[in-house]
């Protein structure tokens, strides 16, 4: 396979793997196939999906470096955008099905509940990264692009906090996510030692 074919194949796979669960989710949801509380189910499913995709996105560059597979970098944007896509569905589920379009309640929740506030901040940042992810813009933004996109690490931590704060008692799963996030950050310690002092 040429490099282009590899990229094409992997991208096709990513589209399928990211879209199939969404289609399944909403088909089941509307046919009463998600158990007693479909609202909670779709919120959790899309929230987890967004976080999983974010983690996978952040695996790309370490993998590409380690195995010297530079072409992998070409699928990173797609993965990141799917993470954003899931996060938007997550928010839409919350507003449409949980709050049932009660916008004043939504604004109340964003202000009053710290875990929702944090989720909102994460989503706004994710939006900023998504709209600036196109190559044309990337070239135009020059060094600022990288600066902006370094916020992805903040997003990751915000989402982990959002998650652990949202659960009632069983924090074992969010703790596992914290550990995964920590590993992904630790892999980049060289980068951080470079960017952190310079950002002063």
């Amino acid at each position: 396979m040429t490099q282009n074919q590899k990229v094409f194949t992997l991208k096709t796979f990513i589209h399928l793997a990211a879209l199939t669960p969404v289609i399944w989710l909403y088909l089941s949801a509307f046919s009463d196939g998600l158990g007693a509380d479909p609202v909670q189910y779709v919120i959790h499913f899309t929230g987890k999906g967004a976080l999983n995709l974010l983690l996978i996105t952040l695996c790309v560059s370490p993998l590409a470096q380690k195995f010297k597979q530079g072409w992998l970098m070409q699928v990173r944007r797609l993965l990141g955008l799917y993470s954003f896509f899931y996060a938007v569905l997550h928010l839409a589920n919350f507003i449409l099905f949980d709050l049932q379009n009660n916008w004043s309640l939504f604004i109340n929740e964003v202000i009053k509940r710290p875990y929702i506030t944090i989720g909102m901040v994460a989503l706004l940042l994710l939006t900023a990264l998504s709209v600036t992810s196109f190559n044309a813009l990337r070239r135009k933004m020059g060094r600022n692009w990288q600066k902006l996109h370094n916020w992805v690490y903040v997003i990751l931590l915000l989402v982990c906090v959002h998650y652990i704060w949202s659960v009632k008692a069983n924090i074992s799963q969010p703790l596992i996510y914290f550990m995964l996030a920590f590993v992904l950050l630790a892999l980049r310690y060289k980068k951080f030692s470079r960017i952190l002092p310079s950002s002063r």
Binding site: S31, F97, L105, K112
Partner: peptide, 24 residues
């Protein structure tokens, strides 16, 4: 009296039907 992390002013009633039937 809200729970510190969520509102107790309303609730999702679980009956029949899927997502569209959900009822706050």
């Amino acid at each position: 009296v809200d729970h510190p992390r969520w509102s107790q002013a309303s609730e999702r009633r679980i009956t029949t039907g899927g997502l569209f039937a959900s009822n706050r």
